[in-house]
Nucleic acid binder design. Structure first.
Lengths: 155, 155
DNA sequence: TTCATTGCAAAGCGTTTGCAGTCAC
DNA sequence: GTGACTGCAAACGCTTTGCAATGAA
């Protein structure tokens, strides 16, 4: 959840971005932004579309895709491709850089943050003489049961 | 490239895997394996299919997909989802663990290896009490031009 | 012989696109 | 008023699936 006045900041960011880029401030765009920031964490295009439909908001999938594209451009959301299936998104304003652990048995997504990634990034940039714009890091695994814990304790 | 006797090892690994899992050793499966190990690095399903067609081998896309699934199961290839489009694969036998840098302007793929990733993995496992089976790490960036280099030197 | 595997074509599924109507500016 | 944006439906591209024919065991 996000405080009302916090959302108004996000809304302003979006509004400014639209204006600066000569894009129109349509009610659909703001409704989608609000829908995204109203709920927690990850979502995919279809669940967002269905949710808005259920709340009797008149949107089309095309507009959802369109708006998501704009929101990606102004960094208000981040895109993930966890599995091979559909894309997942998460809001990114107010949220510090983090990466993800995917628990493959439960499909649960856990967030973590490790400064060593930034260090690796710096090394990469120096060694290969490149500028890194972004990265994606996912660990895939499962929760330890008692048994598994004992087993891995050996190593 | 891979030496002839090296490939025979891969072939044996595959052959054994098929036998152990009650799968049939069809000529198509071995032809696909060979095609993959004959060329260097990354490929996608369609380019593999077209290549085999051009060499007058009778295969279907369905069989390519099927075989790739089996090869993934026995860890003879690895799957990547670089962009949002089609899946990319690479052979994984004989090749040590590495991650990738995607140069977004040229679509070039560079490999690198950094031991700190293993360290992060260990930390993750301890902190969250999980077992990590695999990870995927991609850096997205661009080659530095002279100008960009000078700019970034400021920071 | 038997049933896993094949090729083919059709279907699936997330995403993109074309277009006539709409509405933000 | 005008052209960017919308909803709708059709198209798209990668992947999966259904099914009759094939061939490995």
């Amino acid at each position: 959840m996000i405080a009302e006045n916090d959302f108004s900041v996000v809304k302003n960011v979006f509004s400014s971005y639209l204006e600066e880029n000569g894009l129109r401030r349509t009610p659909e765009r703001f409704a989608i932004l609000e829908q995204i920031y109203d709920s927690k964490e990850h979502f995919d295009v279809d669940s967002l579309y269905v949710k808005m439909k259920n709340e009797n908001f008149r949107v089309s999938r095309a507009t959802v895709y369109n708006t998501i594209e704009v929101l990606l451009d102004c960094n208000l959301i981040r895109k993930h491709q966890f599995g091979d299936d559909k894309a997942h998104y998460e809001k990114s304003f107010f949220y510090r850089q983090h990466d993800h652990i995917i628990l493959t048995d439960t499909q649960e997504v856990v967030e973590f943050c490790d400064p060593r990634i930034e260090a690796i990034k710096k090394t990469i940039e120096e060694v290969f003489n490149i500028t890194v714009d972004s990265h994606s890091l996912y660990f895939y695994g499962t929760r330890n049961t008692e048994t598994k814990e004992n087993q891995s304790a050996k190593s």
